[in-house]
Design a protein around this nucleic acid. Structure first.
Lengths: 340, 340
DNA sequence: ATAATATGAACAAACGATTGAGCAGAATAT
DNA sequence: ATATTCTGCTCAATCGTTTGTTCATATTAT
């Protein structure tokens, strides 16, 4: 039962409209006398008045709420991005409704519908990524939407991405330069832009060095740790085992590490590995990990800025912003044979 | 411009109230004919009607929104809890507004005020923890509030905690049993219940084995990585260096690891370490970490259930639920001298 | 002294949904 | 044939704000 504008009006002996104008700082514009203004402000203070944002949102058709839909918030990569997004959004006056889809498209659709019904002013979406037709209505309506990390060819929207192709290309090139020829890739969710671009980078790096692509070395089906664990377990038992692994997410890496550990193998002596997503702990693993680092903070920051700009100007101009990843070389790739 | 109840009413040729009743499934209770009901439902489908939750919230005084205020979402411990909370809340029909306070009390106060003005139905708060008077108004109003991870003596509320004292006691006892006598503790934010209870556990474990408490070995000022890094750096250069470290959060641990690594020391050979918060990567560090594991999922689950119960029954009965942590022994504590 | 302008504030509709009360007409009872 | 009860719906108020319009009264001009 917080105080309302009505309570203030009553107690100050003025009308609702006058109170509204004063508390919104429109006193002079509507020629409210200094006396009345002071009186109202004082009563407002006494009653600890705080405007009901629901009513405000209903009337103004803006809620200062933005939705964030994310595949897995327990993934440090997403957690860091979320932190930056929440932080910056709050600075700009917006609150964040956070939804975790668990990489599940149905849940994603459900969450987006729910968010829309809650009247969010804009949406930052890190989509599951295999389907985009549920976004069509938003695009049509010109609803402020920013796609983050993963994008769709067929959709005209604001997208903030990192150059997954380049990241993968650099990672695999690095492995090759250290003398490896049998390099496996454990990919994430097939069909997502991140996965397919990373795969393309992997293939092109091999091709450029005239290394034949072995379909048996292309495995993986999602971004979670179990996937990394299972695929690594299998790869370690295959005849003609690969000498190096390219794991395309930090969680996949985690699973791979577990499998390698269980088999009593060491990195990089028995198995080389390059990971995607630079996690905080990477430098302190049994073998400091060489990884492709993504500019998480920047991604979050740009996403928020683009979104809020779209909300305010009410203009949504489709564009893709692509950020460069960086290969951080530590010590998880062994130099083989001809290794310089 | 989503469809409203009015649009449906117009198109179906009935009144607003009838539409409202039908779409809320109250058709029979209000004796709406099957025909009318069918007609309305069909129009609703066609128009992709979805109720405006703002208007609904205003009228019903419930928003199906709950606030989650958290000290640092990039901390894996909090990220995991958040994931469980969001997941369960969504299952129960609630959405989550997530706020990160960065362990800053002013921000916490600001966020709580903002959340209240947005009309949240309830609040899960992992407080910074040094101050609680800003919570008094909520308690007085009997507002549904669950304190998670950290609590206050002076506040009567629902609290979901882990037994930090026991966790610390077990951890330090384990270190002592392996022959250590000079054991340092790097604590988090002083004044928080977690920090002081962990410190108490540390002291009591030493006392019980007749080891004198050395104030120089009690350091640390917050839960972040920098703190762990700085304090470890100093501890490593002090005369009569400790042989073991008890780091009281995963981020502190991260900083400590960095410092130890920089000094070219190895765990457990040159320095033993027991951490708090069992992180995913713990088993894969240079030396698998012995840690105190907290039941993150359970914590989140209980918090949500208690909160929603309080929201629904509208009864807030103060109680503290204390969960037991578990010491997971890996390989980061060296056996010294008399080590059995 | 009368007309014109300024000043300060109140009225009322609207945002979209919910809900108790009311009101026709049809069906049944007397 | 009249009174009563059902049926099936509509009316109108309400939630807390915002804002264009109106309307007194006071001030200035003529």
């Amino acid at each position: 039962m917080p105080a309302t504008i009505k309570d203030i009006a009553h107690q100050a002996g003025v009308s609702l409209s006058t109170v509204s104008r004063v508390v919104n700082g429109k006193a002079l514009r509507y020629r409210i006398s200094k006396d009345t203004e002071a009186k109202i402000m004082q009563v407002a203070k006494e009653l600890h008045y705080s405007p009901n944002q629901l009513a405000r949102g209903l009337r103004l058709k803006k809620t200062l709420l933005i939705g964030l839909v994310i595949p897995d918030i327990s993934n440090p990569f997403f957690a860091h991005i979320t932190k930056r997004i929440q932080n910056l959004a709050h600075q700009k006056g917006y609150s964040l409704i956070v939804c975790d889809t668990d990489e599940n498209l149905d849940l994603e659709i459900e969450h987006i519908d729910l968010l829309m019904s809650k009247g969010i002013d804009g949406l930052i979406l890190m989509p599951v990524g295999q389907e985009s037709k549920h976004l069509a209505p938003l695009i049509e309506r010109n609803f402020p939407l920013v796609l983050l990390d993963r994008c769709f060819e067929e959709i005209e929207s604001i997208s903030v991405l990192v150059d997954d192709y380049q990241g993968a290309f650099d990672a695999v090139s690095h492995i090759i330069e250290r003398g490896h020829r049998r390099i496996a890739i454990i990919q994430g969710l097939p069909g997502t832009s991140t996965s397919s671009n990373r795969l393309r980078g992997y293939k092109d790096a091999l091709l450029q060095k005239n290394i034949e692509i072995d379909a048996d070395l292309i495995v993986g089906s999602d971004f979670r740790a179990e996937n990394g664990y299972i695929e690594t377990k299998i790869l370690l038992h295959v005849r003609n085992r690969p000498t190096a692994l390219f794991t395309t997410s930090d969680l996949i890496t985690l699973g791979a590490l577990k499998a390698i550990d269980e088999e009593n193998l060491a990195i990089p002596d028995d198995m080389s590995l390059v990971a995607f997503d630079d996690i905080d702990f990477a430098p302190y693993l049994s073998s400091p990990l060489t990884t492709v680092s993504q500019p998480k903070m920047i991604m979050g920051e740009i996403a928020v800025k683009m979104l809020i700009d779209a909300i305010i100007t009410h203009r949504v101009s489709a564009q893709k912003i692509v950020l460069k990843p960086q290969l951080i070389v530590r010590n998880s790739v062994r130099r083989l044979g001809d290794g310089r």
